[in-house]
């Protein structure tokens, strides 16, 4: 489904702020894979997701989604293959537009936008049913500005938007990091449910090792722009946080340094 080959990315090349964010990443995701990504500060987790989404151009390497080479496609052109949820709950929705307007925008991802009506009455009915699934009482607030919703509600809405029309690949970039623990758990449970229901292929960056172990069928660990560990199937199910930390120390030759991860575990 996703094929990343020899991906390199350096930010601010040639300056004192030079940062080698990705140092030769190879990653293949099979159909239906739900991969969790962990790693220390600056390991390149978010950069990897952003490169797949087309936020930055690649230095070298290639990315293809479902057999289509998207390496040179701009961010908005790639969007039709992708569903994305960001770390910042403010980033995934348009605050000064209504809930139904936000959903309608997502419903047209990858489609031509012409002079047809922006929302049809059929869509409104469909949106109500979808929102009811979130169990947040949002189904009766279609004409509420999204900016008035809480961070957790907005993130749930963004998730709903991201999984609309079954994207080829779902990218979750620490999407629960900014939420309180209870809301984070809810959003994570929703993510699980949507991925299962839609049989989606997903890549989820998380700072929480327990979450990384508990969710998905495969776990990769990144360090200094490389994938240093790739665990799947039964092996992954048996993993513990201690083993992961040990493994990290062994592979990287240093302590696992991620402020949020250490606080969370």
């Amino acid at each position: 489904m996703l094929e990343v080959k020899g991906l390199y990315k350096t930010f601010n090349a040639g300056s004192v702020n030079e940062k080698k964010a990705l140092n030769g990443v190879d990653l293949t995701l099979n159909n239906g894979d739900f991969v969790t990504v962990i790693g220390g500060n600056g390991a390149g987790k978010s950069t990897l997701l952003n490169m797949i989404a087309g936020v930055y151009p690649v230095d070298s390497g290639s990315i293809s989604i479902d057999g289509t080479d998207v390496t040179k496609l701009s961010e908005h052109k790639r969007a039709k293959y992708l569903g994305r949820v960001f770390q910042d709950p403010m980033m995934g929705t348009a605050a000064d537009m209504w809930l139904e307007e936000n959903l309608a925008v997502a419903n047209r991802r990858g489609k031509f936008r012409g002079f047809g009506w922006s929302i049809s009455s059929g869509e409104r009915k469909q949106f109500k049913e979808m929102l009811a699934k979130l169990d947040l009482g949002l189904e009766n607030r279609l004409t509420t500005k999204v900016g008035l919703l809480s961070g957790g509600q907005r993130q749930a809405v963004t998730l709903l938007m991201a999984v609309m029309n079954n994207p080829k690949l779902l990218l979750l970039d620490e999407h629960t990091a900014a939420l309180d623990p209870k809301t984070a758990a809810n959003v994570l449970a929703l993510s699980d449910r949507f991925i299962e229901e839609g049989n989606l292929t997903a890549l989820m960056v998380t700072h929480n090792m327990r979450d990384a172990i508990a969710h998905g069928n495969r776990l990769i660990m990144m360090n200094e722009g490389r994938i240093i560990l790739d665990v799947r199937g039964e092996d992954k199910k048996k993993l513990t946080v201690e083993e992961l930390l040990e493994e990290f120390a062994k592979l990287s030759g240093s302590e696992f340094a991620n402020d949020r991860a250490l606080l969370a575990n």
């Binding site: 908005h76 039709k80 960001f86 925008v105 991802r109 936008r113 002079f115």
Partner: peptide, 26 residues
């Protein structure tokens, strides 16, 4: 501004990241 195109203009002004993530050429 009630059409799909008009809508995408509003989204562009409101949140560019979200616009691009949803296939809008900002």
């Amino acid at each position: 501004f009630g059409t799909e195109l008009g809508h995408s203009l509003r989204v562009t002004g409101s949140n560019q990241s979200m616009a691009r993530a949803n296939g809008i050429n900002t």
